[in-house]
Design a protein around this nucleic acid. Structure first.
Lengths: 225, 225, 225, 225
DNA sequence: GCGTAAGCGAGACGGTACGTCACGTCTTAAC
DNA sequence: GTTAAGACGTGACGTACCGTCTCGCTTACGC
C-alpha cells in the first residue's frame, strides 16, 4: 500500500482478531500529510460504524475528513484498502509512533486456561460494536478481492498466526499437547468455528461455547501418556 | 421472498455446501412468466462468473436475460436475493420440477469413511469454478445482510444442517462417537475450518487436509471405552 | 442534434442576429420529457446571463433545472449545443408550437431607410443584456467547434442570410443598388463591422455609426446612372 | 502583465493580423529564468496547435515545458495571458532581442495596389495552420475577458491600427480617397469582412474575395472629382 | 566568497466539475 | 394487459485541472 519501515518492538496481545502496523513516513520521497491520513482513516471507521459498509462511499469519507477525494485515491487503491488501513490504525492507536511490533500471547504455563481466556477475549472483541461493522466489512472485501486478501494475510494475519503458533509450541514443549500436533490444523479447529459463527451469525459467542470449543480441540491433540 | 408451497420429496446429498428449493408456482396467484424467471437466474449466474460479484448489476442481468428491469424488481427485493435464488436453482437443476426435497447423507455405517468422503466431495465442490464466484458473492451478501442471512439459514442451511445432524445421530447410536457429543459443536469443528480456508484463501483444500481434519474431530469426541 | 420536422410558416424579422427552429417531438421513437427540456434551456440561459459562460457548468444547469445530469447528456453532445438550443428557443418563444418559419425583412421600397432601421434594431439587440452573454458565449463555441459552427450555419444563419439577400434582390430590381451587386459581399461589408465592434468591444454601436455604415456600403454599390 | 521597457525601433509590416512586443528583462528587479519563459510560451503554442484551446491546460504546459506550475502562475495571471504572450513572441521571433518596434506599412503610392497586397498577405496569414489555432483561441479569450481585451488592444491592436491609419492618411493626402474619409469606418469595412469569414468559417478567403473587397471599399470613399 | 533569499522543479493538497454508470421508479408502445 | 424498452431524478464513481501551498535545490546578489 505504501512504503513501510519495519522498526520492531514487542507488544503483548490479549485477543486474536488482528493487530498490525502503521505505515512509516519513508523520509525520502512522498511528502505526505499525516493529518489528512489520520482524518481519512478516522472518518472511514466512523462512517462504517454509522451507516454500514454498503453505504460507505469515498465521497462521504472525503467530506467528513475535510479532504479532497484525490487525496484518498492518491494513497489507497480501493475502498477496501482504506478500510483495512483504518482497522490496522485502530488496532494500535496510542502505540509508539510508526513502530512495528512483535506480538506475544500470554503464557501462564497452563495452555487450557490461557486458550480459554484468549477465546473469551476474542469473542468479546467480536461483540464490540466499534469493531463489528468495520471488520465485517473488511471481511467481505477480503473474500472478494485476492489482492487485498494477500495484503491482509501478510500484514495482519501472518504475525498474529505466528504468535499463536509460538504459544502452542510452548505448550507442546511443556507436554500439554501431542508432540506431533499440526499447529495449523489445531488453530483452524480452534479459531474457525468462532469466526464462522460470528460471520454468518449462526450462533451466540458465549463463554460456554468458547470453553467447550477449547476443551474439544485439546481433546483432539492429547499428549502421549 | 415469495410464496412457496413446500412439496417435499427425498434427495440424497453427497456434499455439504448447500442444497435447496425452488419457489413453486402457487397455482392460484401470480401470473409469473417462468421463461423470464429462468433467464434472469441464468443471466445472474453467468454474469457473476464472468465479471465477479462487484460488477454484477441489475441492468446487466436484465439486458442479458432480455427482460425489463421492472420484471426483476417485481419479484426480487435485492441483488442478493436474485443471487441466492440463482444459486438455489443451480443446486437442483434437472431435479423434479418445483419440488422440495428432504435431504439425507450417505450412511455406510462407518462414520469416519463417510465423513472423509463427504469432506472431500465438499472441498471439490468449493473448487468448482462455476460454484466459486456465485457462492463467494452470496456469502458476502449474507454476511452483511441479516435479512438475507435469515432466508438463507431457513431455506438453505437448516435442511442441510439437519441432515448432517441426522448422520451424526446415527453414528452416536452406533457408538462411534461419544454419547454426549454436542452435535453442533462437532459440526462447527468439522465444517468451519474447511469453509474458512476457502473463504479467506488461507490454504489449499487438499484431501490430506480434510482427512486429517475428520480424524482430529473424531478424536475430540471419542466414544466411551 | 435531434430530429426536426420542418413545418414552415412565415415570420417577419426586424433584426439580424438570429432566429430559428425548435425541435419537434418526432412521434416515433424518443419519449422525451418536454418539461425537462424547457427547464434545461431556461436554466442555461439564466446561468450564462448571471455568471458568464466561463463559469457555466452542466452541473449547475442540471441543478437549477431540477434535472439529472444524464438527462442533459442524453440529448445534447456538449455545453455549446445546449447553449445553441437555448438561444434558438429564446428567439422564438411564444411562437406557434414546433413550427419552422420562413423569414422576411421589412420592405418599404426605400432600401436605405429599411437598412438603417434594420441596423439600428440589430445594434439595439446586441446591447440587450439578456442577449449579450449567451450570444457572446455561443460565438466562442462556434469559433472553436466546427461541428457546432455547421449546425449554427445551417439552422440559424442560412435562413436569415436568405432573407437578407431577398431584401437586397428587391432593391436591385428597384434599381436602388447596382445591377451586378455581389449580394454576399454587400452583406459582409454591411454586417461584419457591426458584429466585429460588438465582439471585440472595439467601439460603440451608436445609430450614427450604423447610419454611416449603411450610407458607405450603399455608395460602394451605386446603381448605373 | 509584467514590467516592460519600451525600446523602440522601426519594423515594416506586410500583413495585418498582429505584431508586438516582448517583455524586457528590466535589469534591476526580477531574477527571471528566460529559458523557462521561452519553454512555457513554446509549449503553449505547440499544445494549442496539437490539442486545441479547449484542451489546453496549465498543467500540460508546465509538464511539456519541464517547469513547475508555480512558475507559470508567478508570471501570468491567466491561461489567456500566456497565450497572448506566446502569440506575441511568435510574431517577432528572430527580431532584435527585446526591442519594441514602430510599424509601417508598404507605401508604393498606389493605395489600391498596396491594400490588395496587404489583404492577400493577411488572408494567407490566416490560413497558416501554425497561426490558426492560437489566434482563434486568443480571440475567444479576448471576446470573453475584457481585461485581456484591453491588454490586447493596447499592446497589439493599437500600433497596427495606427500604422493602417497612417497609410490611409497618406492616400488621403494623395487624393486617392475622399478628403473627409472616416478612417476608422474605412478600416472596419475593409478588415471586418475578412476577419469575420475566417472566424465563423463562413466562406473562403481567396485573393478574388479580398481584391473585390478592396475595390468595393475604395468605391465607398471616392475622392472628389 | 559566502550566507541568504529569490526563483525554481516537483508535486501534495482542498476543491470543483467532468462524463459515466447504476440505481429504483416511472411511463409508454406493442405484442 | 403484461412486458420490453428505456427515460427520468438521484447519487457515487474515478479522473482531470484548478490555484495554493510546501518542499529541497540551485543560483546570483549584496554584504
Amino acid at each position: 500500500m505504501h512504503p513501510r519501515r519495519p522498526f520492531v518492538k514487542t507488544r503483548r496481545l490479549d485477543s486474536f482478531i488482528l493487530c498490525s502496523v502503521t505505515p512509516n513516513k519513508t523520509p525520502g520521497t512522498p511528502r505526505r500529510n499525516d493529518r489528512s491520513r489520520r482524518a481519512i482513516l478516522d472518518a472511514a471507521r466512523e462512517l462504517v460504524a454509522e451507516k454500514g459498509y454498503a453505504k460507505l462511499t469515498i465521497e462521504a469519507i472525503a467530506a467528513r475528513a475535510g479532504v479532497g477525494k484525490q487525496t484518498i485515491y492518491r494513497w489507497w487503491p480501493s475502498k477496501g484498502a482504506v478500510l483495512l488501513d483504518s482497522v490496522l490504525a485502530l488496532s494500535q492507536n496510542g502505540e509508539g509512533e510508526g513502530a512495528e511490533q512483535a506480538i506475544t500471547l500470554p503464557d501462564t504455563g497452563d495452555v487450557e486456561a490461557d486458550l480459554k481466556a484468549l477465546m473469551r477475549a476474542t469473542a468479546a472483541e467480536f461483540s464490540d460494536p466499534s469493531f463489528e461493522a468495520p471488520i465485517r466489512a473488511l471481511n467481505s472485501e477480503i473474500a472478494n478481492d485476492p489482492d487485498l486478501a494477500a495484503v491482509y494475510a501478510e500484514q495482519v494475519a501472518a504475525p498474529v498466526e505466528e504468535a499463536k503458533r509460538e504459544r502452542l509450541r510452548s505448550a507442546r514443549r511443556a507436554g500439554q499437547i501431542a508432540a506431533d500436533t499440526d499447529l495449523d490444523l489445531f488453530l483452524d479447529m480452534l479459531y474457525s468455528p468462532l469466526y464462522q459463527r460470528w460471520l454468518l451469525r449462526s450462533g451466540e459467542l458465549t463463554p460456554q461455547y468458547t470453553d467447550r470449543l477449547v476443551e474439544a480441540v485439546l481433546r483432539a491433540f492429547p499428549p502421549a501418556k
